[in-house]
Design a protein around this nucleic acid. Structure first.
Lengths: 333, 333
DNA sequence: AGTTCTATTGTAATCGATTACATTTTGAAT
DNA sequence: ATTCAAAATGTAATCGATTACAATAGAACT
């Protein structure tokens, strides 16, 4: 493998000069630059970035930890991250934690071991203290998820109010016996969306039947199973708000299995607005998050952290949007 | 930041000994090991892997380039890769090329720059010569995709025979006017599935109407648009074989939009068996690839390449499986 | 030509860990 | 106690690039 020193020899200059040409730093005359470039060309020189990274103590790479890469919601956030990262000379790598806290914390170790300069977490299933501690020493930004009372820079929507908004929507359509398929209760996201549901129910004097709150895990399967439970009740709900679209899709599948109709027999609302939400029939009423913007904002924040700039604002709460489609009966199909 | 040298000082041993404890190589007595571990603990030492990587000239990291991370087909292949990688002490990083050859070739540079030890490509949209050349110097494995007459180790199914098989299935159900929504013609995968379709048609003396072969790009949207074209024909097809499930789903959407029924009016078959294939109604008849096995086999091959072992076999063709569901009318719903 | 200042280039230390080779320690056998 | 081999540990070079600092070349001016 050709190394910088050999290029220097062929071009009859010092390694310093070659390095200056390579990384475009410092002054080099046009003539020597040409000479060096020619030598690189001739030798087909491929720089070993490990050398640079070790010396500069930076990798120009960031890591995004995603709970589920197959979910289009997260892949859109990623697009936002990438657009800002590339513009600033950073590479983006992805880690799929598969909704697993342990796997998540392993990805975090990449920071400690100097494999990446910063991390954007789209999931926070591992011990919150671990994340807090890490963010004392390294650049970490949380997006979509957040931690209560944390000083970690965060970009997200107001999950409570969004959940309240979509539950309100169901209530306005005349539903009073509304069930909720929640996210995991050990995750804030899950708790917040439940809280929004409860607030809407209480504010509209709808009774909250504890049987109508089943805990899911954001997976299609858990949505399906929870819905089966509701359908087995003597007095099933007339509407269901699922804490994400995948579970909502699972619920719809279960309802169809029982030869019932969405929205005529049971209305379904989701959360996230994944691609499938508008493909599936009936098209899913859901809450759209500003995915691209969440990603780009998170990356901007991370850039500031990596430059050790003072952040003027640490918590960004972006606007969501209620997507009224056909699964709740508000729009005719 | 604490470094190895400081640990050595605190433990009153040499850096060599600390390194031996750290990387579990060579002999160290239990007593000194304890001493070193205690010192590491006390200083909260976090090794900088860049040092090790530079010295050993390996990163113990591999990169998987995926054309579309949001597609569950690829995320399942990834699971297979990861399972073997982790067992062998390798980290897996993902790059999303977004079906873009240029982005793909940028990810390949990570090899040249020594950022990763090997690459598994689940896409081959960039210049084949570039990939060939790279694989002369570095460990590269191709999975799902392949290159004609290439010496690059490859794991895939026989796309031609699979496509023939599913087209045969449609023909056996009585269809003769069958359309194909193909993948991109600049990709072998697309050409192979088309070839399989043509073979089945010809062998069964079905006329191949060139109007009934539209080129898509594996996206939902292109499936939708192609189907719209077929529906606008005076004599639309009675069945459509789409070169992947996403396009098949797009086609179904278009059919439903026209208030027609799948499979009663038009039968639809897909390819890949993504999660949505069995969720959507009607459930999609498609070809299931052994995703996990493709991934694990590809990783095994890559391990051999990285160990510079001689490969006994370079081309692995795995068995696919026809998944007969409801979108072609073979099974009653 | 000589002086001064600046622009360019070179020398060598450096980043943090690993490891070839040298040295010391240990323990068993005599 | 002595010898010797094996085991443990230490010393210092090394990986490949970057960069602080030193040295030199070049330009501009008198």
């Amino acid at each position: 493998m050709i190394k910088l020193k050999e290029v220097a020899e062929l071009a009859s200059v010092s390694t310093a000069t070659v390095s200056r040409v390579l990384s475009n730093t410092g002054k080099v005359t046009k003539k020597t630059r040409q000479k060096v470039l020619a030598a690189m060309e001739e030798l087909n020189y491929q720089p070993n970035f490990l050398g640079r990274q070790l010396r500069r103590m930076e990798t120009k790479t960031i890591l995004v930890v995603v709970p589920d890469i197959a979910n289009t919601f997260f892949s859109k956030v990623l697009r936002g991250i990438e657009s800002v990262a590339i513009k600033n000379g950073y590479q983006v790598l992805m880690g799929d934690s598969q909704n697993n806290g342990q796997s998540e914390s392993q990805y975090l170790n990449h920071l400690r071991y100097k494999q990446v300069d910063g991390v954007i977490l789209l999931t926070a299933r591992t011990d919150p203290r671990l994340i807090e501690d890490l963010s004392d020493d390294y650049p970490v930004v949380l997006a979509c998820e957040y931690l209560e009372g944390s000083r970690i820079p965060t970009v997200s929507i107001d999950n409570i109010s969004s959940a309240r908004k979509i539950t309100d929507h169901l209530i306005k359509l005349g539903h009073r016996r509304i069930a909720h398929i929640s996210g995991p209760m050990n995750i804030i996201l899950g708790r917040d969306r439940l809280k929004g549901y409860e607030q809407a129910m209480t504010q509209n004097s709808c009774e909250i039947d504890q049987v109508l709150v089943q805990e899911g895990d954001f997976s299609y399967e858990s949505g399906y199973k929870s819905m089966e439970k509701y359908l087995a009740l003597q007095n099933p709900p007339t509407a269901v708000f699922a804490a994400n679209d995948e579970m909502a899709i699972g619920a719809i599948k279960a309802i169809k299995k029982h030869h019932l109709s969405v929205p005529n027999d049971i209305a379904i609302a989701g959360f996230d607005d994944i691609d499938m939400a508008s493909i599936l029939e009936p098209e899913l009423t859901t809450v759209a998050q500003p995915t691209f913007e969440i990603g780009s904002t998170a990356m901007e924040l991370l850039l500031c952290l990596m430059k050790k700039e003072q952040l003027t604002k640490k918590q960004y709460v972006l606007e969501d949007q209620l997507m009224v489609r056909h699964s709740c009966g508000a729009n005719k199909m």
